[in-house]
Every structure is written in C-alpha cells, then in structure tokens.
C-alpha cells in the first residue's frame, strides 16, 4: 500500500492516471474501432463493386458477341467492319480487358483485408473498451474515507492496467518461447481458478465431442 501518500497526493496521482492512462486508452480504443470498421467497410464495398463490374463486363461482352457478331447479327460475316461494327468491336475489347484486369485488383483488396485483419481486431478493441468501462467504475469517489479511497484507488489502477495488458497480450504471446508460453498458460489457469472459473470446462473428450 502507498502508506507514504497523503490523501491529497493520492488524489493527485489518481487524476493524472485517469487522464493519461484511462482516458487515453479509451480514446485509443474508440478511434481504433472506428478506423478498423471504416477500413473494413470500404474494402468490402470496393471488392463487391469490382466483382459486380467484372460480371457485368463479361456478360455484356458475351451479349454483344452473341447478338451482333454471330448468327443473323448485323456484323456477322462482314469482311470489313463498318463504323458501327468497329465501335462494337472496340467496346467488346474494352469489356474483355476489364473482365481480365478487375479480378486481380479484387484479389489485391481481399489480401489487403486479410493482411491488416481489420475484422479480427475490431472486436478486440470493442471488448477492451467494454472492459475499461468496468475498470473506470472502480475509480474512487472524492467523498470516500481515506481507507476506502486507498482501496478503491488500488483496485482502479490494477484493473485498468489489466485491461491494457489483455489488449496487448497478442504481442506477448507471439514473442514468448514455448517454455514461457506454457508458464503463461499455467498462470492464466491459476487466475481463472482464483476467480471461480474452470478453464477445462469445455475440454474435448477422447471421442472428440465437447463435454
């Protein structure tokens, strides 16, 4: 416990933490969620439009060929194309080129979405935002007694730091060795038991069905 602090000093440190840790993190999570959602939506829209235009170009080219250049079409069997047929040929060429060019562009945007993982990361920040509101709920009230304020202060700071750790745990897991990973998993198990949970509750049986 911070026995050396007076109540006023505790309050001063609380307000600094509240601004530079909690508020900062909250703004960051909100901003990240908005950016990821917007990026994901834009890329989805681009991919959909590209797919639509590709299909439209293909079927339009097919239609023009079928109706104008085959059977009894006006341009069928002509030795030299007149102005109309020349324009139609040019249009069909453009449509065929588009139907060839657009799919790789669509794949580029699909791969972009997979690379940046906007759809995956957005729920992570959403969850962190919800959790930080819970941490904020533990913040001390100025009307509390000194002992209550100290206890509430401790709980508030630790809860906020726990939310921050959970949000960045994906970096930690990726950079740990297998032995450290196992120790990390065991530590998480202990925490789960401490709060009354059972990490093995949904363990698969030997038959492969969840018990």
């Amino acid at each position: 416990m911070s026995e050396e602090f007076t109540l006023d000093e505790l309050k001063a440190r609380y307000w600094i933490f509240e601004k530079y840790a909690l508020q900062d993190q909250r703004h960051y999570y909100q901003s990240s969620m908005r950016r990821f959602e917007k990026a994901d939506e834009e890329v989805s829209r681009v991919r959909a439009r590209i797919a639509f235009l590709t299909g439209l170009a293909s079927i339009t080219a097919g239609l023009l060929v079928q109706t104008q250049f085959l059977g009894s079409g006006q341009c069928a069997g002509l030795e030299e194309a007149n102005a109309t047929c020349g324009s139609l040929q040019l249009l069909i060429t453009i449509l065929v080129i588009l139907s060839v060019i657009l799919p790789p562009v669509g794949v580029f945007f699909s791969t972009l979405a997979d690379t940046f993982q906007w759809a995956t990361l957005r729920p992570l920040y959403e969850r962190s935002l919800e959790n930080i509101e819970v941490a904020d709920a533990l913040s001390p009230d100025p009307e509390m007694s000194e002992e209550e304020y100290q206890a509430s202060y401790q709980a508030f700071v630790k809860a906020t730091l726990a939310v921050m750790r959970e949000e960045t745990s994906r970096f930690e897991v990726q950079s740990r060795t297998p032995e450290e990973l196992q120790a990390f998993i065991e530590a998480q198990r202990k925490i789960a038991y401490r709060v009354g949970g059972d990490p093995d509750r949904h363990k698969l049986s030997t038959d492969g069905d969840a018990t």
Binding site: S2, R13, Y20, A21, Q154, V157, M164, R165
Partner: peptide, 11 residues
C-alpha cells in the same frame, strides 16, 4: 508503459 504507471501510482 504499464511499468511507468505502476511506479508513478505506487502500486
């Protein structure tokens, strides 16, 4: 970053 706040808040 977390250690920074941990020290400053004396937890």
């Amino acid at each position: 970053r977390r250690e920074f706040f941990r020290y400053l808040m004396r937890i």
